[in-house]
Amino acid sequence: MDTGSHDDSYTAPGVRGMVADWAADKQAFDMPWGKLMMWIFLLSDTFIFSIFLTSYMNVRLSATDSWPNASEVFALEIFGHHLPLILIAIMTFVLITSSGTMAMAVNFAYRRDRRKTVWLMAATALLGASFVGMQAFEWTKLIEDGVRPWGNPWGAAQFGSAFFMITGFHGLHVSAGVIYLAIVARKVARGDYEQKGYAIVEIAGLYWHFVDLVWVFIFAFFYLW
């Protein structure tokens, strides 16, 4: 290690250079504080969701009653057609679309196109809100069918417990994200970030993409297994 403050070893090639670069003074990652903090938070949140899903798998495997058939439970009758998983498919589509609008918002934010940024963020938030709305509809329907956190007509009680707990926790994340996006969008519209720059839009976007990504896993483990 060099003793002076002007440490140039990070220009060295290979692993040595990489390590020196990473350990260099001031900043380990070339990004704003808030962005790194969001990444670390998401890492922690990843652990939360992973543990939720692992616990779900565990109770599903150790449950004494049989597990209800997801594609039947989550089917809708539309115009006389019996469509398994249709609502979930739409919800998933909506959420993934919202990731697209969010990515565009980030792009326009860095180009300092405030109008488009605000519109795209509003669209993202709306898509998110409609996702939550559809989820509320799904919950209502399941409750009408007799599914409760402590039991259901078709088998293991843990089905309802895990379902309401995990989709509920995810739904809270989406709702929080909608509020977060709304606040940031309002500030963008007011021009609050003209000085500081628009990294905040990207940070909000990170959170939003994460929530979408988590949904894909919940979808796979809950509805497709």
């Binding site: 403050s5 001031k26 380990a28």
Partner: peptide, 9 residues
């Protein structure tokens, strides 16, 4: 990670 002063590797 991000707020070390100059020289504090």
């Amino acid at each position: 990670l991000q707020a070390r002063t100059r020289g504090m590797t």
